[in-house]
């Protein structure tokens, strides 16, 4: 009787042990894979920041103010560069007291002879008037500190994924759910 019990318990222990080792290995594998994916994405992002000199090297166009050149959902690639900003460039700038940066074209530049500082005025190609109405109260010019990046290239439509996911959060959950499901059911 005792022999049977010990044999059964040994069998259970063995089975449990093998199941546990498989599961543990499997879970660890998936965690490592996920970690690699996330860290490589992070590395690419940081490298882009370093090479472009812009704190957000890729931005998505949200408004219609630069139509028909840039449409909602286009992705802009930014590069800071050390050369002073000149008229005609399309810059991304931040205004104090505003959360969302703006992508507009530079239409006026005044560069101080002594300090080398530039005073910049911008305007959206599709807007009637210049951007003084968008700036902070009593702000006449943008300085270098306001400029987040200068656009060098763009990709059409690719930003729609981001727009949809920020404006319809449930899509994000659906996507995450489907991905999680696929990870679970696949080996």
């Amino acid at each position: 009787m005792a022999g049977v019990a010990s044999r059964v318990s040994a069998y259970i222990k063995e089975t449990m042990g093998s199941i546990r080792s498989i599961k543990l290995r499997h879970i660890m594998n998936q965690i490592i894979t996920l970690g690699i994916i996330m860290s490589s994405a992070f590395i690419i992002w940081k490298c882009l920041i370093h090479y472009t000199g812009s704190e957000s090297p890729v931005v998505v166009v949200l408004s219609e103010s630069m139509e028909p050149g840039f449409q909602r959902g286009d992705i802009l690639v930014l590069h800071m560069g050390s050369a002073p900003v000149r008229a005609g460039e399309i810059v991304v700038y931040n205004v104090d007291g505003r959360d969302i940066p703006i992508v507009h074209r530079v239409i006026q530049v005044h560069q101080d002879r002594d300090s080398g500082e530039v005073a910049i005025l911008t305007k959206g190609d599709n807007n009637e008037y210049d951007d003084r109405g968008l700036y902070a109260e009593d702000q006449m010019w943008l300085d270098r500190e306001h400029i987040m990046g200068r656009s060098v290239g763009f990709l059409p439509y690719f930003g729609w994924a981001t727009i949809l996911m920020t404006e319809r959060p449930f899509l994000k959950f659906i996507l995450l759910g489907v991905l999680a499901l696929l990870v679970i059911i696949s080996d």
């Binding site: 050149g69 002073p84 000149r86 008229a87 005609g88 074209r105 239409i107 006026q108 530049v109 005044h110 560069q111 101080d112 002879r113 080398g116 190609d125």
Partner: peptide
């Protein structure tokens, strides 16, 4: 094409002025 004409000049205070 986004075409614009800018006036460009220098002044005693500014080393570069550009006005579209």
């Amino acid at each position: 094409l986004f075409v614009f004409v800018a006036a460009e000049y220098t002044t005693p205070k500014n080393s570069w002025n550009q006005i579209s």
